[in-house]
């Protein structure tokens, strides 16, 4: 059996060669005084330490008029209304599901904010409450949209559209939420033959492009048909490409993913995980993205 082995090597950053030092960025660490001027407003990532505005996280200072925030490099998902998320059911409760969404508190999906199978709009009866587990049980993955944010920061989700609902066969990739580019749509049918949901919370779902939408199921129908090998290969390749892009902190959106996929076509799927090949394809993707920007 052929075994591929490698010694640990210090990861070398290749991007700094392209962009020299971080120009004009105001980077702070916890405890740094940002300003002692009292005319500013205190935003996220800061606190007042006897009249001085002080940073509480390590990151970049952002100023919007009088408001000063520090955005940390890496953090949990801070949801906003309208965000598309992919989450996992962690608990079934009375009239609600708890959903793990990489947020600092579990999100809530109310029974009244889902489209039940049958498609008709009706009052949720006690019977529906008893059969909640038939629709979604612990461990199921769903896609949803943030409906509102509670005062303690927990999110309330809804799946009141045919595009949201339970996720069937596919692959989940978890990346940092800050790597997902905000776009008009987070659902993409990629031309390479698979579909992708880029959750704002950093959960990315890759699945075979569905043939037709079953209106009756209201988003809760999951196909258990075997997925052909060619589709599975595309999905695996996409998954490895996403990991490669995430390792080099490249923003994820349809174009960057597609470019990376195309650059990777010369390699075998399993080879895309090797560091030197990751460097190569990400470099190529990066170049194509720069060319496209002009």
């Amino acid at each position: 059996m052929a075994v591929d082995m490698r010694l640990p090597a210090r990861k070398q950053a290749f991007l700094p060669a392209i962009h020299s030092s971080s120009d004009g960025k105001h980077l702070v660490v916890p405890g740094d005084v940002i300003t002692s001027d009292t005319g500013f407003m205190r935003g996220h990532g800061t606190y007042m330490d006897d009249e001085k505005l002080t940073a509480s996280v390590a990151g970049e200072v952002e100023r919007v008029n009088k408001l000063i925030c520090v955005r940390p490099l890496k953090t949990r998902f801070n949801g906003e209304v309208g965000d598309v998320v992919v989450g996992r059911i962690t608990e079934v409760q009375q009239k609600r599901w708890k959903v793990g969404t990489n947020s600092r508190l579990d999100s809530v999906l109310l029974l009244s904010s889902v489209n039940l199978p049958g498609g008709e709009l009706r009052r949720r009866s006690a019977e529906d409450e008893l059969t909640m587990r038939d629709y979604l049980q612990e461990g199921d993955l769903i896609s949803a949209e943030v409906q509102s944010v509670f005062s303690d920061g927990a999110l309330s989700l809804h799946t009141r559209s045919l595009k949201y609902g339970k996720l069937g066969q596919g692959v989940l990739v978890q990346v940092s939420p800050s790597l997902i580019k905000r776009q008009k749509t987070h659902f993409h049918n990629l031309t390479c033959g698979a579909s992708i949901i880029l959750g704002n919370n950093g959960y990315v779902w890759i699945y075979p492009t569905p043939g037709h939408q079953d209106e009756e199921a209201g988003g809760y129908y999951t196909s258990l048909e075997p997925v052909p090998l060619s589709d599975r290969e595309i999905i695996s390749r996409l998954r490895n490409c996403l990991l490669a892009l995430a390792a080099h902190k490249v923003m994820l959106y349809d174009t960057s993913i597609l470019y990376c996929y195309e650059s990777s076509l010369t390699h075998q799927i399993k080879d895309i995980l090797k560091p030197e090949i990751v460097d190569e394809i990400v470099m190529e993707t990066h170049q194509r993205l720069l060319d496209q920007e002009g």
Partner: peptide, 18 residues
Amino acid sequence: LDDVVRQHLQEVSVQTRE
């Protein structure tokens, strides 16, 4: 510690710059 954090910050922020 401060040096380590600043170094790390610099490295990552250069990487994430688009």
